[in-house]
Amino acid sequence: MINKIFQSAADAVEDISDGSVVMISGFGEAGSPIELIHALVDRGAKNLTVVSNNTGSGNVGLAALIENRQVGKMICSFPRTANSTVFPELYRKGEIELELVPQGTLAERIRAGGAGIPAFYTPTAVDTPLSEGKEVRIFNGIRYILESAIKADFALVKCKSADRLGNLIYNKTARNFGPVMCMAAKTCIVQAREIVEQGKIDPEAVVTPGIFVTRIVEIPHPAHESQLVLENRRYPWI
C-alpha cells in the first residue's frame, strides 16, 4: 500500500547528504517550508546547492541554513530582500556562489526539469549580462537564448492539505514555486498543515498530483518567518 506519510520532519530529511541539489519552495516567507529547512539544519548536510527564489531573512529558515555554512551555491532570482543579511555578507566575502536567474526563467527551468525537457529558448535576458555565454538563436526574426532545465535531488515544499497519496492543495500566494519543484526533484518532501483522508480533496481541485510527491509530514502550526525575524530569533533556537 502506498503511504507517503512520515512522522517527523527529521525522518523526512534523513537522507539529504552532502553535495545534494535541494529546491526550496517559497516567495519570501510565503510557502517557505520552515520546519523542513530547520530539520535540514539539524541534519547538517553540507555543500548543498539550493534553488529558491530568495535567500531567506533574519537568522531562521533558509537564512539559518546559509548561516550554518551548509550552502555552497544559491540559484535564485532575488537574493536580497528586507531583513536579508546572511547571504549578502557571505557573498561579499566570496564565501558563497550565486547563479542569478530571471524569475520566470527560473520557474520555467524548474518546470522543464520536471517535464523531461532538457533546455528551451526564451527572449528573457537577451542583450543583458545574464545572457553572457548562452547560445543565441533567431526564430521569426526575434533573438532567443538557450536556457537549460534544473533538476534536483530533493525538493522541500510547503502546502495546505495533502492526502496519503501525495495529492496537494496550497494556500493563496504560498503556492508559488511548490508545484514545479515537486515535479523536478527525485525526492519531493512536503510539509502540510493537514493530512486529510483519501478522497477528501476534490480531484478537480488537486494542484499537485500525488505522483510528484514522495514524502509528507504534517506540521499543523508552522512558524511564521516574519514573526521570528521580528523577535530576533535564531535557529538553532537558543
Binding site: F78, R80, L100, P102, Q103, T122, T124, L130
Partner: peptide, 21 residues
C-alpha cells in the same frame, strides 16, 4: 536591476521576464 558595482548584490526578480513578454 543593477548598478553593476562590484560589491552590490545583483537581484533581478521578474524584471527581465516582464520587459520581454
Amino acid at each position: 536591476w543593477s548598478t553593476g558595482e562590484p560589491h552590490s548584490i545583483p537581484a533581478v526578480g521578474g524584471a527581465m521576464d516582464l520587459v520581454s513578454g
